[in-house]
Each structure stands twice: as C-alpha cells, then as structure tokens.
Design a protein around this nucleic acid. Structure first.
Length: 417
DNA sequence: ACAGCGTCTAAAGTATTTTC
DNA sequence: GAAAATACTTTAGACGCTGT
C-alpha cells in the first residue's frame, strides 16, 4: 500500500498524513477491546504481597516435608508464543513451564539464587530504593558467576510475578539516545529538551568556562531516561519518529541537522538491539502522539531482527509485549531492493555469512512474516543475492547521500513497507 | 527422548588498561 | 601522551551437553 506512488505533487505532509490515517484505521479495526494481560504496573504493596505468597508456598511445602520448587514459564520456546498483528509476539496464557526443584542437584543452585534475588527485591521494594542488575551481580559475583545468570533470573521473576522489571525496583542503565522535537519533564521535575536545532544546542556539561561555545560544540542527543513511566508533559511538533539502528548513523544525521531540515521529527537510537527503556520510550511516544514510526536499519538479517524487536517484540520478553511493542513501525530502509534500485556499487556489499543465512532462515519461519508479504519479498531478495549492505554503503554514492537524498525521497514518495 | 542450563555468537557501545 | 587492545554494558537466540 505504501508502495503506491503518490506523484511528485503530493507534498511530504500529505504523504505522512495519509500514512498516519491508514495506520490509525488499521489499529481501530483490530481488536476493539485489547485484552489486558501480561504485566501491568504494580504497586509496591502488590509486589511485596506476591513475594510473600511465594515464600509462604515454599514454607508450607517444607512443612509438609516436601521439597519446594518454583514453577517458571518457559520464555525460550516459540511454542509458547502467539502472534497478534495488533500487539506482536505474546506469551500464551497456558504456556509450558519448567520446574526449578530444590531437591535436584542440577537446579538447586538456581532455586537458591532465585530465593536470594527475591529477598533482595523484597528489601528494595520495602525500602523504596533502586538497584541495577549490575549492583545485584556484584553483591556476590562469585556466587552468581556470570552477569547473565542474574539477568536471566530477574526476567524469570518478572515473568513469574507478572510485574514489569521496574516495579521490582531493578534498573538497567539506558543505552538509547533521543534527539529532535521533544520536551518532557522527568519524574523529579527536571525539564529536558531534546531539540537539536542550531539555536537550541544542548549543553549539559558545564564546560563552557573553558572558552566560548564555539562552532565545535556538537549537537548532542539526550540519553533515554531510565524512568519512562514517570515522564510528564511530553510536547512535540514532530511529524514522524525515526528509529536508527546504529549510533554512528544517528550521530551522522545529527551532524547533518536532519531533525530540522525537512520537518520537525524525533530521532531515537537503541544502539543495536534496544534495551527495555528505549522500547518503552518508543511505545510511549507512539501512544501519545500517533505519529508515523520508521526504522532505518542495515540491510542484513541482524538489522531486520532489530526492527522486528521494535515492531513485534522478542520471544524472551513476550510476556511484556503490551508495554514494549509498536506494531505500527514501518521499514523505511535500508531495503535489499534499494541496493539494486540505487545501483550501490558491488564492492560496498558484503556476502552473507553462514550465520547470517541461518538467522535469515529463522526469521522467515517466524509467525509475523506471513502478514508481511513485502518483508518476505525483501528477505528472499537478500537470500537470493547472498549479499548484505550496511547503511554506511550509501556513502559510496556521496558522503551526505543519506540525509540529503535517500531519506527525503523515501519520506516524500513513501518508499517504506 | 526431552527439558534445562550453560556456552557461544553477534551488534552496538563505553571505560579502562596496555602498548608504542 | 596517544593509540590500540581488552574488558565489560545492553540485548536475542541458536546450539549442544547432561541428567532425569
């Protein structure tokens, strides 16, 4: 549908507005009353109560002279995933579970670690303090052995209690950046402007005493706040939201003043696979403003995967899909079909590795591909050519091709899918 | 046979340490 | 002192070993 050429006379805003209208129409004919399931923000007392319940179960089991166990939803099987075009990947309500027994030598350690982290969470919530996943790991790095052990258990607990990670008072340092036409108030009252216009350069570091702000002062992006839920008074003039895969591309667009060149917009990057805060932010921006959301990723399997995470979410976080996914996300570029269309020189293409091909095959088997025939076509094109391309490949055409030609044309003439 | 768990890869980045 | 190397941050997911 977006392929339909609108002719050069159609203004940029008309194209975006029509697109926005069709997105909203598609939404409204979806599920009229979205089933409320998955995690919801829970009050501290609710979290404390659920932990108490779990501990009580353990105690009563012990009192019966039996070995206690935790029943944990299996977050790593596609069997437990159902796909809904309007939400993305969701966990089925009767999913397979695994039992972490306390009387089996294999799982007793995990059982103990879950208990330990549960108790730490309990203390955090009770005292209304916050800790990062790293903090928890470093309380006893010998015991945990590996940071990923902690991460995994925290996600399991979040899934078991059906409570978002933040309600467990566990933070993770944001890695995403945001720039453009957006202002908001943080939970503590700090006003933040992400404007990257020449007249509104953001200078958070008080280094101006070193000299007058010179032309070397760079347009800076704002780090994605760690408490998305606490953001207030969000204001924007943006006509669309552009999600950029890589920080390098993001910085390049900032330097080229892309935010203000065409029309006001918001740019976000998750620097690779996005963290939860970045996904929460994108979701929040969509919910509030309903502006078109585009992704700019490499034309490789990994880039496609990253885009899918924004759009439909991931398997292991499917229990939180309601808070994390934006199915209205569109694939703007770099499309495999762009490689031929733009005559990108062969020497800036990279052959797919064996691993790339495996990943491409696995994505093609996922449930959401069936409702995205255009995506399937693009992916098959990539599989046939056995080549991939980074966004960087556009610079072989000219150094500012991306911001001066590629993106403006895409936005004007609707070359997204 | 299958579930569970650990290991490995992969991509982005930052921060610190080592080397020239 | 600057550049290069290493280690560690976020994330997802495939693969393979092991024990029930």
């Amino acid at each position: 549908m977006a392929f339909a050429p609108m002719g050069p006379e159609a203004s940029f805003f008309e194209v975006l507005d029509r697109h926005r209208a069709s997105l909203l129409a598609a939404l409204s004919k979806g599920s009229p009353e979205p089933p409320v399931q998955g995690t919801r923000t829970a009050s501290s007392s609710e979290v404390l109560a659920s932990i108490e319940n779990i501990i009580q179960d353990v105690v009563t089991t012990l009192a019966r002279n039996e070995a206690p166990a935790f029943i944990i939803d299996n977050r790593s099987s596609w069997e437990n995933i159902k796909f809904d075009d309007t939400v993305g990947l969701q966990m089925v309500s009767h999913c397979t579970t695994r039992k972490i027994k306390s009387d089996s030598p294999k799982s007793v350690k995990k059982f103990a670690l879950i208990l330990k982290i549960l108790s730490m969470i309990y203390k955090l919530v009770q005292s209304n303090t916050y800790a990062t996943k790293r903090d928890i790991y470093y309380t006893d790095s010998q015991l945990f052995g590996n940071q990923s052990v902690v991460d995994n258990i925290i996600d399991d607990i979040s899934c078991m209690l059906k409570v978002p990670r933040r309600s467990l008072h566990i933070l993770s340092t944001s890695k995403g950046l945001i720039a453009g036409s957006l202002r908001f108030t943080e939970e503590d009252g700090t006003r933040v402007s992400c404007a990257c216009g020449a007249s509104a350069l953001v200078c958070r570091e008080p280094q101006s005493w070193m000299g007058p702000p010179s032309s070397q002062e760079r347009r800076q992006a704002i780090a994605v706040p760690s408490n998305i839920q606490g953001l207030r008074n969000l204001i924007t003039d943006a006509k669309f939201l552009l999600i950029v895969e890589k920080d390098a591309t993001f910085q390049r667009l900032l330097d080229d003043n892309f935010c203000n060149k065409m029309s006001p917009c918001i740019m976000v990057t998750g620097k690779g696979i996005p963290d939860l805060n970045t996904r929460l932010l994108v979701k929040k921006l969509w919910d509030l403003f309903h502006i078109p959301v585009f992704t700019l990723v490499d034309a490789d399997p990994h880039g496609i995967e990253i885009m899918c995470i924004y759009k439909y979410g991931s398997m292991s976080m499917s229990f939180e899909a309601h808070n994390l996914t934006v199915p209205a996300v569109r694939w703007l570029g770099l499309l495999p079909s762009d490689i031929n269309r733009l005559n990108i020189p062969k020497d800036s293409l990279i052959p797919l590795t064996k691993r790339d091909q495996m990943k491409l095959d696995s994505i093609l088997k996922r449930p959401y591909v069936t409702c995205q025939p255009f995506w399937r076509k693009e992916m098959e094109m990539m599989a046939d050519s056995r080549m991939k391309a980074e966004i960087q490949a556009l610079t072989s055409l000219s150094s500012d091709y991306l911001s001066r030609v590629y993106l403006p044309n895409k936005l004007k003439f609707g070359g997204w899918i």
